[in-house]
């Protein structure tokens, strides 16, 4: 709010401050609670009143988590990373290409095709496809492998839609035209003109897709097995085996969040910037 108008509409009153303080507090508390339990003993975890400060068992609980070999927690982390990264790359690349085509190229049927994508956005592939995809993976003997959790997510209607919207507003038509006049081919225009302009949008899409894939639960639960889990499955297996060991389970959940937090903190400004520039909008 660089334009300092004297208007009282922009003045942050006490109500505003309370709203924001509550917002920040509520956002942080469950994560904080996760750390409390993850650093305590099992008995303390179920005390009444519940503990409100972290304990000193961080190292011990990490060690116990790694010792629980049958949960394959580290393998789960690595697997999730591979899956989420591959899916993110694919979705961002495919969406950026298609978004450019829909936003800036003239071709017959573009409108119909875009509308098709919009409708496919509403297809809950994870639920709708779960039975046939599973039967398909078993047929191909891909069940239990990472292929099975990567391939169905390589495209994403939301991504195309978002990149179409973003490209439309971020790339001026004149720029594309000027490049054409200079004799640049379409791919060259994409690379030289479009890509630099849509980067903030790509960053936001990348974060959203990475997170969504990282958090995928139902499909991995169906198609993977505990020997080769994603991190979400690994936690859910911990949850099934060590039902009464809250610190262990919470340590797993805490460590499953760390990579996302890391990305978030590293690229936070970029992501907020991208969102603020209207990366996600109708």
């Amino acid at each position: 709010m660089s334009t300092a108008t004297g208007s009282r509409v922009w003045h942050a009153g006490p109500l505003t401050k309370i709203t924001l303080a509550l917002g920040v507090l509520l956002s942080a508390f469950p994560l904080y609670f996760m750390i409390i339990i993850a650093t305590r003993t099992n008995d303390e975890a179920v005390d009444v009143p519940p503990p409100l400060l972290p304990g000193g068992r961080l190292g011990e609980n990490v060690q116990r988590l790694l010792d629980a070999e049958e949960a394959h927690f580290l393998l789960g982390l690595a697997n999730s990373f591979i899956v989420a990264a591959t899916v993110t790359l694919s979705v961002v690349a495919i969406s950026t290409l298609a978004g450019f085509a829909f936003a800036k190229l003239r071709f017959r049927g573009a409108k119909v095709l875009l509308l098709t994508i919009l409708i496919t956005m509403m297809v809950p592939l994870q639920q709708m496809g779960v039975v046939p995809l599973y039967l398909m993976m078993v047929e191909l003997e891909w069940n239990g492998t990472l292929k099975a959790v990567i391939l169905p997510f390589l495209v994403n209607g939301f991504g195309v839609f978002m990149m179409t919207q973003y490209t439309t507003q971020a790339v001026p038509d004149e720029l594309v035209e000027a490049a054409r006049v200079d004799g640049a081919a379409t791919m060259r225009i994409w690379w030289n003109v479009v890509l630099p302009a849509v980067r903030p949008g790509m960053a936001v899409l990348a974060l959203l897709v990475f997170m969504q894939t990282w958090n995928e639960f139902m499909w991995p639960l169906v198609v993977l097995d505990p020997q080769n889990p994603t991190v979400q499955l690994s936690i859910s297996n911990l949850n099934g085996q060590y039902t009464n060991d809250y610190p262990l389970i919470f340590m797993g959940t805490a460590l499953s969040v760390v990579p996302l937090l890391f990305i978030f903190v590293l690229f936070g400004r970029q992501i907020v910037g991208g969102l603020m520039e209207g990366a996600v909008k109708a």
């Binding site: 917002g23 956002s27 469950p30 958090n215 639960f217 936690i235 499953s256 969040v257």
Partner: peptide, 16 residues
């Protein structure tokens, strides 16, 4: 801060 919950994994949220 208010975006923070978004990056928390879903199973973690449910467990907590």
């Amino acid at each position: 801060s208010i975006l923070l919950p978004m990056v928390t994994s879903v199973v973690a949220v449910a467990v907590v």
